[in-house]
């Protein structure tokens, strides 16, 4: 069965978001911005003024560093874009969402259902996962224009806040919904049913290490 394909604005309405189901494939139109640890630390911990009108300009936060350059004349070239793993940003996301009204968090690997239920759902937000991972060239084709890049001097090219105009950028997969359900956890539960059989005839580590789990149904994030 092929997944359902949906075109979505980066400033979506509540109804748009409510209509999304786990596993739907989404293409984005409008402005999105990149923000990861560098931007979060600067905006939230150092209280720097965010150089965009949020969420009116964009409610879509991409956990991404692009493969890009700033040309001598001040224009930009962006080749490929791919997400980075989002679970490391859970520390800042609740405050970021409150401050910016972000409704679409786009990244790699998703968050836990606990994250979704505790602060995504109350903020009317959902998670979109990139596909692959690494459909960098396909996503690059969805860039109509690089509108701006903020904080390059302070954060470097990889951590800067890039503002991208998207024209049917995708594919992305809906990985959480307004119930706070998590696509990856659903899949992990299905896979866990088979694990005992696969592990038959193997032997646990003789030497244990602190901080490890030996329960394969545990989430790793």
């Amino acid at each position: 069965m092929k997944p359902r394909e949906i075109d979505l604005s980066t400033t979506p309405t509540d109804e748009d978001i409510a209509a999304l189901k786990l596993g739907d494939v989404v293409y984005l139109n409008g402005l999105l911005y990149t923000a990861r640890e560098g931007v979060y630390m600067r905006a939230l911990e150092k209280q720097a003024n965010i150089p965009m009108e949020l969420p009116s300009q964009s409610a879509a936060n991409f956990h991404c560093s692009p493969a890009a350059r700033v040309n001598d004349d001040g224009t930009f070239d962006m080749g490929a874009v791919t997400a980075t793993a989002s679970f490391r940003f859970a520390k800042w996301l609740p405050e970021w969402m409150q401050k910016t009204g972000a409704k679409l968090i786009i990244g790699k690997g998703g968050m836990t259902s606990k994250d979704y239920k505790s602060y995504f759902v109350p903020n009317g937000a959902i998670y979109l996962s990139t596909v692959g991972y690494g459909t960098g060239a396909l996503l690059g084709r969805g860039i109509e224009k690089v509108e701006a890049v903020h904080w390059v001097d302070e954060l470097g090219l990889a951590q800067a806040m890039w503002v991208i105009k998207c024209n049917r950028m995708g594919p992305f997969i809906v990985a959480s919904d307004l119930n706070g359900d998590c696509l990856f956890e659903r899949e992990n539960e299905k896979i866990a049913q088979n694990i005992e059989r696969v592990y038959e005839g193997t032997r646990p580590a003789t030497l244990k290490r602190y901080g490890e789990t030996d329960d394969r149904s545990d989430e790793v994030i």
Binding site: S65, A67, G79, T82, G136, L138, R141
Partner: peptide
């Protein structure tokens, strides 16, 4: 499809 797009456009196959 992504590998094809990368070669056609001469852009990196992955953003990372």
């Amino acid at each position: 499809e992504n590998y094809e797009a990368a070669k056609e456009d001469r852009r990196a196959m992955c953003g990372d």
